[in-house]
Design a protein around this nucleic acid. Structure first.
Lengths: 159, 159
DNA sequence: ATCGGTAGTAAAGCAACTTTACTTGGGAGG
DNA sequence: CCTCCCAAGTAAAGTTGCTTTACTACCGAT
């Protein structure tokens, strides 16, 4: 007996599926953080917090990690500083350098966001297991390596 | 004997892997189209061409498909019309409506882009098979269904 | 002493949108 | 008919998140 209901997703290009899946997962993630009171932070701010998470960084270092100009990084830092998520300190190495570090407010966000993301991914993994599938971690990693080799570029807005 | 070189991608969240994979595939796709002489077209233009591919559409219909305001759709159409990729015709249903249809120039692009994308995805699939993996089509489709149900929203820039 | 390189900042420019506000053509109801 | 309203389309200004251009400040080396 032939299945007559064709799933439109079965004929959709892998590239579209990747984009849709990423957009939906990120949207769900951002939505949960908004609901948790972080509606003043965009995904890029999470990347900033991750980059500064350890001992902080200079704005130029941050710019390189984000894949933007140092002026853009400076603007993001200005904004986050005004809203008390980061602070500019004198850099131990001296010079004109300034060390940008996270406030406790940002570290709290980082913890909440990490927890939220893992819960979301765990729920997704469970839903896939229900239909006999696993999360395609190895497949995605292989695609990334095939296209980027060992040097993975920064995650940027897609178009 | 224990493997000592941990692949950083193995510890990376699925969400990041999705984003990286999409960004890299789309970047490769756009790069190939640029090289083929289509450096004046962005991904959104491809979506427009797909939406108008059959019998055309009105700018409001296009706006809904793209998930933007009708003014934004109008601006995109203005631009594409100036560059002879689309034409505004009188709409058979009359009224203020105008039917936006593709020129041959756009249909050629659509064919080239489709071919390019399939070649790219086929090469990727082959590279995955070399390491014993398959393209994660079912997994991505399951993730999309888990998050969007049956109503898949338009593909938009991600942040 | 000054030269050059790097960090940071300031200001203007730009692309791709949204928001606000208007115009126009065509029914539907009275 | 007439008018009232709605949907399609357009115009213009505003917004966002960057880049480009241009500058200042600090340092170490020659």
């Amino acid at each position: 007996m032939r299945v007559t209901t064709h799933d439109p997703l079965e004929r959709t290009e892998i590239t579209f599926l990747l984009g849709m899946a990423f957009q939906l997962v990120l949207g769900e993630f951002v939505g949960r953080l908004d609901a948790a009171g972080y509606d003043d932070l965009r995904p890029v701010h999470g990347l900033v917090f991750q980059a500064l998470g350890g001992a902080g960084a200079t704005s130029s270092e941050l710019a390189e990690q984000l894949g933007v100009t140092k002026q853009a990084a400076g603007q993001i830092i200005d904004d986050l500083e005004r809203r008390c998520y980061v602070e500019r300190q004198a850099h131990p190495a001296g010079g004109r350098r300034k060390l940008v570090v996270l406030t406790d407010r940002a570290r709290t966000h980082l913890a909440v966001a990490g927890q939220t993301l893992h819960e979301l991914e765990e729920r997704l993994a469970a839903q896939l297991r229900e239909v006999g599938l696993e999360m395609p971690r190895a497949e995605l990693a292989a695609m990334i390596r095939a296209l980027a080799g060992d040097s993975v570029p920064p995650l940027r807005p897609v178009w």
